[in-house]
Write a protein that binds this DNA or RNA. Sequence first.
DNA 1: GATGGTTCGAATCGTTCATAACAAAAAACC
DNA 2: GGTTTTTTGTTATGAACGATTCGAACCATC
Lengths: 295, 295
Amino acid sequence: MIRIKKEIFDRMEELSPSERKVARALLADYPSSGLGSTGQLARAAGTSAPTVLRLVARLGLGSYAEFQKHLRDEIMHDLNAPVRRAESEAPREDRTDVGRSLAERRDLLDRLGSTVSGSEIERAARLLASEPKAVLISGGYYSRFLAEILARQLDQITPNIDFLPDPLGYNVGKFYGAKRNTVVVLFDLRRYQLEAAQVAALAKREGASLIVITDEEISPIADKADVVLAVPVGGIPFDSFAPLMVLVEVLVEAVLRAAGQKGIDRMKLWEDRSYLERTPHPQPDEAASPSQEAS
Amino acid sequence: MIRIKKEIFDRMEELSPSERKVARALLADYPSSGLGSTGQLARAAGTSAPTVLRLVARLGLGSYAEFQKHLRDEIMHDLNAPVRRAESEAPREDRTDVGRSLAERRDLLDRLGSTVSGSEIERAARLLASEPKAVLISGGYYSRFLAEILARQLDQITPNIDFLPDPLGYNVGKFYGAKRNTVVVLFDLRRYQLEAAQVAALAKREGASLIVITDEEISPIADKADVVLAVPVGGIPFDSFAPLMVLVEVLVEAVLRAAGQKGIDRMKLWEDRSYLERTPHPQPDEAASPSQEAS
DNA sequence: GATGGTTCGAATCGTTCATAACAAAAAACC
DNA sequence: GGTTTTTTGTTATGAACGATTCGAACCATC
C-alpha cells in the first residue's frame, strides 16, 4: 500500500519549488485538502492546478483520480486501524486540568512530526551551516524570544549570527550591508504582523535567502520563503510555543550536524571562554548579541 | 460538529427505500464512498444520482459539497484524535537524525508528567493567583528567556508581575520593597549559577515565597523553596527547553484557572489595549516589561 | 379502478473539472 | 552572455459534475 504522506515526505527533496508549495499545503491540512479538486488545492497552495497534477505525476500516480483513490485508501486504513477503534470508542479517561494541558501539548508535538518534514529542516540547516556572510534572525512580540534562543544557540555553532530585535528600526542597516550570501530567519506566527511582511520583502529584494518559521495555517509571507517550517500551535485555549521550541532545538542540532567538525570546534572554543568569563563576576547582563555561558 | 455517520444511523427510519440503499452503501464503505461523486455513490448503491442528493438534503445539508465538507471534517477530527501514538501514521521507524531529535523530546515530555505532579503546579498557581503585592521572576543565561515568557503571560492574567533581568544588580531594590506577600519565581537549571543561590537566600530572608523551576537533579537552592517544579531536560547531546516551555505554559493556564473571572477580565482589558496600540505604528519595540500584542 | 400522494430515475442545463498543449519565465549551464 | 533546460502559469477542450425538472411508476385508500 502506497502511503501518500510518507511518499511526499520522502520525496520532498526532488520537488520543484512550486510543487513543494503544493506538498506543504497538502500536509498542512492533511488529508482533507487532497480530497477536493485540483483547483481548490492549487488555490490553497498559491499555485495553479497543473502544478498539482505535476506533483501527483511525480509521485508516480497517473492521474489525480488515482491520487485521491490512494488517499482514500489511506484514510480507510487509518480509520479502521484496530488500535484506533478501541481507543476512540472508549471514553477518554478523564484527567485533571493540568494533565489535560499537558496531554494537549504532547499531541501537538506528535503532530509536529507530520507537519514539518525532516528534509525541510535539513535544507534549512544546510543553508545555515554554509557559513553565510550573515544570518539575521528576527521574530514577533512573543516569538522574538524563540528567535533569540535560536540566535544564541546558533551562535555557538557558526559565526555571523545576528539577532535583530527591531529589524525595521535601528537594525535595518544589516539588510543593506551584506547583499548576497545572507540568510534571514523570520518567525511569523498567528496574528501575522505586517512588519514581518516588510522584512521579508526587504530581505528578498536584497537577494537574501529566507527561512520562515510559522504556524500551520501558514503566514502570508511564506510565498517568498526559500524554506518554510510550519509548526502546529493548537490554540485551545491558547497557542502553545512548545512545538516551536522543539523545532528550534531540532534545527540547531541539524545545523550542528551539517556544520560538522567546524561547529564542534567552535562550540569548544565557546566553552573555554565561558569558564574564563564566568568566575570573576557572574553574568553582568548583555545586549542583543549572544555571548557567554549556559543555564 | 455534525457526525454524518451518527446522523444516518439515527434517521435511517425516515428514509425512503432508495435513500436507504444509498445510506447502506455509504456506511458499507465509510467514509470513502462519500468522497467521490454523486454518480459513483449512486452506482455503488444501485440507484441514481438524484437519490443521493435527496438523501443529503434530508440530512439537512444544502448541497453535496456541504455534505462532503462535513465528511472531511469528521475524517480530520478522527484522524487527528489524540490517540495517534502507537499508530502507523508518521514515519516511525525511519529514524532519521531529525526524527530522532524529535522523538527524544517527545519522550522528555512524556516524562514531564511524572517528574512534576499536578498538585505542585496547582500549588504554584494558587500562590501566583493570590494577587501578591509583587511577583518577581528571574532566570539564568538561557532560562531567562523562559522566565521572560512566563512574566509576559502572567502579566496578562494578574497584576504586579516583574521580570528581573539582573536580580542582584539594579533590580535588587525590588526585593527590599514589598516584604511579605511577595512571590519569587526562579529558574535555575543545570550548571546552577551561584547567583541564583544568592537571590534565593535574599528572597527567603525578606520573607517572600519561593517557587523554583529546575531540572531533574534539582538545584541546590530547592531546599529553600516553597514549591519546586522539576522538569526533565535530557542532555543528549544537549539539554532541551521543550519540557520547560511546556511547564511554563501549563503553569500559566493553571494560574488563569485559579484566578478565575478576575484573570479573564484582565486578559480582556489587555486585548482591548493591544488593539488600540497596534493600529498606529506597528510595534516600536519595547523594554523588559510586557506590553502589547501577540505573535 | 380511479385518486392523491410519494418515490424515483431519465433527461437536461450550466458549471466545474482534469488534463494536454503551449508559451512565458526562470535557472542552470557552458 | 548567450543558450539550453527546467519550471510554471495560461489557455483550450471535452468529459464529468451537481443540481433541477418532469413524467412515469408505485402504493395506498376509497
